[in-house]
Design a protein around this nucleic acid. Structure first.
Lengths: 219, 219
DNA sequence: TCACATGTTGACCAAATGGTCAGGAAGATA
DNA sequence: TATCTTCCTGACCATTTGGTCAACATGTGA
């Protein structure tokens, strides 16, 4: 039984900058490696080299390989949650769906490594994300689904299964990050230009809106 | 310089059955492991255990980990190619697209492990499939794309970018195999029933046909 | 029966794996 | 200056990695 320090640790705020900087470097180096090789396939040594730090230093800041991986996943889930904003039955379906597709597309392309990290995790059976999928995310999907159904009841769109619709939007947008290698190989491009992105976004929006029979603004 | 056997090896056909049987066992055991963990993350030891064979025996039949992996990829590409059947401008767009979606969906769900294997390979930057993507598959896409364009010219469907359309069909069908963990987690199901599959297929077909303004049979 | 190819496997190897730890460097507070 | 905390890292460890090999088993054809 060691006596806890009475005065606590007042000078807790110390060299925070160093820690923040190094953690950022490590996370940035680790994300593409986990994305590319999966959890098992990634090695701490490779991450350390990419970060330009000794392996011991990576372990010092992150504790363990697993902790590092979980942290990356959590960061990506945060980004995900940020775009799960609230919508209401009163909103215009066309606007909401358009914005949803656009945001999802931007998320995928702004964080392709994170997107692939997430994909690799799901591909592997989502060992670390079961809880999130069956909890938070599921609730979100259900609530959106109910709104889609209400829109259908009001005749604002066709009565399609809203869950399949959400999956359609997810998969078709995610594809351009996760399957980037395939997309570039087939199109023969080195990268997708901003114009390409814009075109794809417009294409997907158009297909979904028209395909679901979403009425254009009636006002 | 060793003299090559003159009589060649007439009795080459030997215990073929044993080889065929064991190779099949090994391939079946390896596919889900590579799919789940990627190339690097999979271990020969784990594959051997899943196959119920000693590691040495796996190496004996497959030569090396890489050779085993490439063989699995090749097998999956063969399945892929099998559904890339020929279509012509004279065909009915609605029929072709409907059949395409259905077949792609069946492929994904009949071989989910193979589908995930493929996905993991692409996620990792397609190190072993570059050639296939930039060659065979690219040609296939281009030729289909030209037909879609001709259909559009004839007023049989909207003039959408056919490549994006093909990607849309690929991604939205593939999703149910690759992201199975997510789909099941969110829907709360243990597996997707045949009815679910049928419903999803109908949903996707409907959205795509309607979204692209494909005319129903005019005859 | 013999001969020869194929099948089978435990022992073994160098390299890489994730992780620990002792000990020193550096910066802040007093 | 002395003291404390955080930072940093090379040496080290047990385990696992893909792969080799020699020895033996099995089956087939003559």
């Amino acid at each position: 039984m060691t006596q806890p320090p009475l005065a606590a640790k007042a000078p807790a705020k110390r060299n925070e900058a160093t820690r923040a900087r190094n953690e950022h470097i490590i996370l940035a180096a680790a994300e593409p490696i986990f994305a590319r090789h999966g959890y098992r396939g990634a090695s701490v040594q490779a991450i350390a080299e990419a970060a330009g730090l000794p392996k011991s230093n990576v372990l010092y800041y992150m504790g363990s390989k697993k902790a590092l991986y979980v942290r990356l996943l959590a960061r990506m889930m945060q980004r995900w949650n940020a775009l799960l904003d609230d919508i209401s039955v009163e909103d215009n379906p066309a606007d909401v769906i358009t914005a949803f597709i656009r945001r999802k597309m931007q998320l995928s392309l702004r964080h392709p490594e994170g997107s692939r990290l997430f994909a690799a995790e799901i591909l592997g059976g989502a060992p670390f994300l079961q809880e999130y999928l069956r909890g938070e995310l599921r609730d979100w999907v259900e609530s959106r689904a109910r709104i889609f159904e209400q829109w259908a009841e009001r005749g604002l769109m066709d009565p399609v299964n809203p869950v399949w619709l959400i999956f359609l939007i997810w998969s078709s947008t995610q594809h351009y990050a996760d399957f980037e290698a395939q997309v570039l190989g087939i199109t023969g491009k080195a990268t997708l230009s901003d114009d390409d992105i814009e075109e794809i976004t417009a294409f997907l929006t158009r297909i979904v809106l028209k395909g679901c029979g979403v009425r254009e603004k009636t006002i």
